[in-house]
Amino acid sequence: MNLQQLRYVVATAEHRTMTDAARSLYIAQPALSRAIRDLERELGMTLFARSGRGVVVTAQGRRVVKLAKEALEAVSEIEALATHTHSGGGELRIASPPTLEPGLAGRLLPAYVAEHPGVRVQIVRSDGRDGVVHAIREQRADLGLTDLPVPADLVSHPLERQEIVLISPPGLDLPDTVPMIRLNGMRLILPPPGSARRREFDQLFATYGVRPIVAAETDERGAWPSLVRTASASLLWYRGTAEQAVKAGLVVRSLDPPLRRVVALVHARRRLPAVAQDFLTSAENGRAI
């Protein structure tokens, strides 16, 4: 028996299908099934009963899953303790998409760093919400900052609601608050097709019955202000980017009805390292919602 097998057992119990569990672990489904069978043979017990729709945890399996979670949490604590001892304060890794980094670096981190000067904080830049989720599942980050919703295997702690606004080049004949129907036929800069963010926008457009004109498709957020000007197109994004847009000479307008997304800190369903728990407590004490 090894830690990898214990992680496989926990993932299978949480996802209830071998296919979904294998996907979350980034391994092939046959390899996961084989590892579970080998462990069951080694233990001399059946952990999962196979069914047409997936797997069901047996009575013995439930006990093993509980102990496996406790063992994995203990290992995480030992690793966190070792990191704390060797670094003189520990390391905290936070996954964030570029659009939320200004709020993370400008508002959440200063208060935490002031109270924990010995902790080294690493921002793991991630590609949108999916990137944050993958960074946590792959244990490349202790916490993630993203908008909701996230998959059920992660725990979320809502911090604030961020407004989605329309960022446009100057000179457009638009009211201060733009009705959603005015997006119909408007030139917009959108995320690439197939991305999670693009699917959300497409669903939003379908809800309000609008068909914008795609002026550009990119996730290069640093190039957006200049792209809005050169492409004479507008952009839908968080008000948190408004300051940068205004400095670039662009116009920021609210939408009607207003659109808001809940931004949260998220993490895996396991005991957090002390440095991560301290950051979570600090952020929740200063949250807006």
Rank of each mutant, 00 (worst) to 15 (best):
P151L: 01
L81E: 14
V251D: 11
A215N: 07
L104D: 04
G44K: 05
S24A: 15
A74Q: 15
G118Y: 03
V252Q: 08
G131M: 08
L25G: 11
L172S: 02
R137L: 14
R271S: 12
H134T: 11
T99G: 12
I123M: 07
R239N: 11
T58G: 08
L227R: 09
V251H: 12
G128F: 04
R161E: 01
I136C: 09
A242L: 03
I27H: 01
Q60M: 13
G209D: 01
N2W: 03
Q29A: 15
R37V: 08
M18D: 12
A95Y: 05
T46A: 13
L67A: 15
D142W: 10
E163A: 13
S282C: 13
R120M: 08
R261Q: 13
V246C: 04
L100P: 02
Y112R: 04
I27V: 14
A11T: 06
P110R: 05
P102A: 06
W237R: 15
L154Y: 02
L235R: 08
E91M: 12
Y112V: 04
M180A: 04
I27E: 02
A68R: 09
D142Y: 08
R187A: 13
A288G: 01
D20Q: 14
R37C: 07
A206E: 14
Q162M: 06
A264I: 04
P30H: 13
A11K: 11
L32N: 10
M1H: 09
A206I: 02
E200L: 08
V133A: 14
R199Y: 06
M180H: 01
V275R: 12
P170I: 03
R107Q: 04
G222H: 12
G240T: 10
Y238S: 15
V150T: 13
D38W: 05
W224M: 11
R93P: 10
V214N: 01
L47G: 06
T207F: 14
E73R: 15
A141K: 10
S168Y: 00
Y8R: 07
Y26Q: 15
A245C: 10
R260I: 06
Q277F: 02
A135F: 09
R269V: 04
L104Y: 01
M186V: 00
V155R: 12
V121A: 05
D20M: 08
L109H: 09
L143R: 07
R199E: 15
S195G: 04
T17P: 12
R34G: 09
H116A: 06
A11N: 10
A59F: 13
L108T: 00
E91P: 00
L67C: 11
L6N: 06
E243C: 00
L92H: 03
D130Q: 14
G171Q: 02
A276D: 03
Q122V: 13
D147S: 14
E70K: 14
R199N: 13
K247W: 00
P30Y: 11
V56N: 10
G286M: 01
A21V: 07
G194V: 02
T230K: 12
I136S: 03
R161V: 00
M18I: 00
A80Y: 00
P273Y: 07
